[in-house]
Design a protein around this nucleic acid. Structure first.
Length: 320
DNA sequence: AATGCGTGGTA
DNA sequence: TTACCAAGCAT
């Protein structure tokens, strides 16, 4: 038997009861929310906090209430409506997923894990989450919150392994209730516990419904076995691309390529940046990076030229 | 299997 | 202020 499972059904009862009393009232959890609404929320929530997703999700649902509505517009519109959620390639994949639903799934979100996995931007977690939360299927949902709760409560560790491993997956499978409805409740409850109480930094153990049976607490809250390495940022293509995206998002018309890539001194000299409005703050930030021309070109090509310049969409188009 | 990918709040 | 980190995915 997996470690921790000898605790019996009390663990499930305690956590699900806690969820019933403490869950956030998120719009994509309401019974009237469509599978499409759940799908959009899951993509937006990848590596992005709930608080920042909420307003964007509301706007998307009003503008594009079904996959076909989104698929009917240029992908550049999806990128603009994405706003500042980050990882804008998710907007492109969500648009492509909507097109795939329109073409291959009769305009609906597919309901099985295997079908969902065929959609762009959908991996193991998202496929299981949508099948579980939107369609009530019994699927093993494993996200970073759930992994952390499992690591602490059942394995006695401060943090889960750097990457999902076979032992973690076995444990998650073993913990999933047999009943469909109970499995959905379990998935949502453990995830919420990880998001609100069993957090990565400063977990709120005093509020935890299973503190008494937590293996990590029982072990004296040992420190993590490894130090997570941070995401590098300064000087990376990501930083340059982020600055480029900020300029393009706010642009009302095509942005001259040389305004993005060219040396600021030359731009000022030939007057390119002087007409119309004062230079946008976003453009100043881009220029302040002093990124090499090669890197600017790479950032443009990697995300924009291939995916967006083909659009006839004014704000994001890059003239040849 | 390890990297790269945006953004902004928090400690 | 700097570093961490937030419902992952694709390569």
């Amino acid at each position: 038997m997996e470690p921790g499972l000898q605790q019996g059904p009390q663990l499930h009862t305690e956590i699900i009861s806690w969820f019933t009393a403490n869950a956030r009232d998120l719009p994509w959890r309401r019974p009237e929310c469509s599978p499409w609404g759940v799908f959009v929320s899951e993509i937006m929530l990848q590596q992005t906090p709930v608080i920042r997703v909420l307003p964007v999700w509301q706007q998307w649902m009003e503008r594009w209430p079904a996959p076909a509505a989104l698929a009917a517009e240029p992908s550049g519109e999806a990128v603009r409506a994405w706003g500042r959620l980050g990882y804008p390639r998710r907007a492109l994949r969500l648009h492509a997923a909507a097109a795939a639903m329109t073409e291959r799934f009769n305009g609906s979100v597919p309901g099985t894990r295997d079908e969902l996995l065929t959609l762009p931007g959908v991996g193991t977690y998202t496929a299981a989450a949508v099948a579980s939360f939107a369609f009530g299927r019994r699927e093993t949902v494993v996200d970073t919150n759930i992994r952390r709760v499992h690591a602490r409560a059942l394995s006695g560790k401060a943090l889960p392994a750097p990457a999902l491993n076979a032992a973690e997956l076995r444990l998650a499978v073993a913990l999933l209730p047999d009943d469909d409805a109970a499995s959905v409740a379990w998935n949502a409850s453990v995830m919420e516990l990880g998001a609100l109480v069993c957090t990565a930094r400063s977990p709120k153990c005093a509020l935890c419904p299973v503190q008494r049976r937590c293996a990590w607490v029982a072990a004296g809250e040992p420190a993590p076995e490894y130090v997570p390495k941070g995401q590098t940022w300064a000087g990376t293509d990501r930083q340059v691309r982020g600055a480029l995206m900020a300029v393009l998002r706010q642009a009302r018309e095509p942005v001259p390529r040389k305004l993005l890539v060219g040396p600021p001194e030359l731009l000022a000299a030939d007057g390119a940046a002087e007409d119309a409005d004062p230079e946008p703050a976003a453009l100043s930030k881009l220029h302040a990076l002093r990124a090499p021309a090669g890197q600017l070109e790479r950032a443009l090509t990697g995300l924009l030229a291939d995916k967006l310049a083909e659009e006839s969409d004014a704000g994001l188009q890059l003239p040849a």
